[in-house]
Design a protein around this nucleic acid. Sequence first.
DNA 1: AAATCGTATCGAAGCGCTTCGACAACCTAT
DNA 2: ATAGGTTGTCGAAGCGCTTCGATACGATTT
Lengths: 337, 337
Amino acid sequence: MVTLAEVAQHAGVSASTVSYVLSGKRSISANTRQRVERSIRELGYHPNAGARALASSRSNIIALMIPLRTDMYVPVMMEIAIAVATAARTHGHDVLLLTGEEGPDAVRRVAGSGLADGMILMDVELDDERMPLLRATDQPSVLIGLPADTTGLTCVDLDFRATGALCVEHLAKQGHQDIAVIGEAPAVYERHTGFAERTLDGLRTRSRELGVRLLHRPCEGGYDAMAVTLARILDERPDTSGIIVQNESAVEPLLALLRQQGRAVPEDVSVVAICPDQVATQASVRLTSVAIPAQEMGRHAVEQLVAKFEGRGSDEVVLLAPELTVRGSTGPAPTRP
Amino acid sequence: MVTLAEVAQHAGVSASTVSYVLSGKRSISANTRQRVERSIRELGYHPNAGARALASSRSNIIALMIPLRTDMYVPVMMEIAIAVATAARTHGHDVLLLTGEEGPDAVRRVAGSGLADGMILMDVELDDERMPLLRATDQPSVLIGLPADTTGLTCVDLDFRATGALCVEHLAKQGHQDIAVIGEAPAVYERHTGFAERTLDGLRTRSRELGVRLLHRPCEGGYDAMAVTLARILDERPDTSGIIVQNESAVEPLLALLRQQGRAVPEDVSVVAICPDQVATQASVRLTSVAIPAQEMGRHAVEQLVAKFEGRGSDEVVLLAPELTVRGSTGPAPTRP
DNA sequence: AAATCGTATCGAAGCGCTTCGACAACCTAT
DNA sequence: ATAGGTTGTCGAAGCGCTTCGATACGATTT
């Protein structure tokens, strides 16, 4: 393994000079710089990560804590993770993958060991046990998702409240008066996951303002659960003409069931989904949807964190504005006979 | 930040003693050990990762290289990634997430900098440009997936050849004579991804042995592409009574189309899927399927790698045996009129 | 001509840990 | 009682890098 000292010797300069060429923290004559750079190339030198971390107390690593659960929104998480990794690289950082399994201990471990310079947490719950720790340590961090109390924290998320409102507006504008919301699995609401509750809040508030009726039902994924949920909804509100789905694994079953029951989309029923674009475009009907801007969230989180490393950056909550893309699954409400 | 030296002082011993308590590499009296452990707890000491890596030249980090593409098998990748992270922790390692973006450079960077003790590569292509590098460096590595030439490499994968054979057998045993295979997107085959080709090989070989007719068609995901593909298949081989799908995003469209055309599953057509269990059980028909053992693959890869760290472990190819789970989507072939 | 300054380089200290050899202190076998 | 083994602990060297003065030297100003 090639060391700094070897490069220095090869280039006929001192070790510190090589270090300064690498970091650019002091001016180096063009001549020397070129000699050093040539030696680095010829010897195939790579700085030793451990030594660098020790001497500079900066590891150039960002820890990313993803949930252990693989029951929900997996492609979105993956997309965020990849966006984080990609963005981190452009800032000269690598990404350490932590699963939620360790819970708060992981925060302690990473902060304590100097393994990472900062961390990004996904799947934040409203009352998350990691928050007190995060506030206590001086380890910079950014959350993807929103806890109940955001004081002293930096967060990035889709504005789910606005998302809910946007969906209702879109349907109401087309004359729909009875709207059903098919949500995530009951467990998600029981866990008080922030995004689910905030969406619901947005949906309810806006529908109240617009004077449309709203019925919300959680739903496990899959065909069978969907059949039961849909039957109950149509039983309670036979005039339902608009459906908003916020549950990836309920989308296709819903469409299949509607088709089976002879309800045409969008002629008889309009459907709006809150889901990744991929799901919306690959469904059996191209769905009008609000996408989860995974890429943007990941990139944003990294940039906030890097800003903190450099002393700029502040504790703020960034809510990304939702965008509704109209595709083929929504249209005017049918006129009642 | 608490250091080893501070712990030593607090416990009234030397720094090296604390180190030996931590590593267990020399015997320590029960008395001293307890005093030290108590100090560690009271001071909230965490060893500094950089210093440790520098002194021991072991970072306790495993690099995991995942593909950048998010167009295929995302949940499986995620599951593997999580399994790797979890397994790594049980062996005292953390996981560094590398995207395929950097390609071979990432291998050089990680090996050169001592950032990780070894690496696990996913999404290996048959003729992968990273392989020569991997063979050249002394950085231990394990592949998830199989390149064309496996000499000098350690690989873990599902036995896709056996998987193909198993699917054909299952259908043939029930009397199906005309079997169609709906595969991955054409791009996957053009890229010469190992698993796709090996599956196909297993399918073809076994169907020849059993004397059944086999028709293979690649297929983009989604409803529209599936409609075209299915129409072509039924046009060419109207007697097709068994279908094998190896394409997650084609599963649900296929079922929807069959239903729409009045072909009952499994009465008229039997369907076998090669996909994660989650997809098979959540589909509108519970699918007979061969699962991708993501957890097991991840765990296995980590264990092979850790074995290499410790000097045991060898270059071998581990092919996990496929298991076919019979659910509701397969039955006897219909008797021809 | 001396004083001042900026630029380019070097030497040395030190980051927090592991590990090796040394050395007491004690226990056994002669 | 002495040689030889254990067992438990310590001190010091060093891992490869960053970074802080210090220094040397040419360019500028007084």
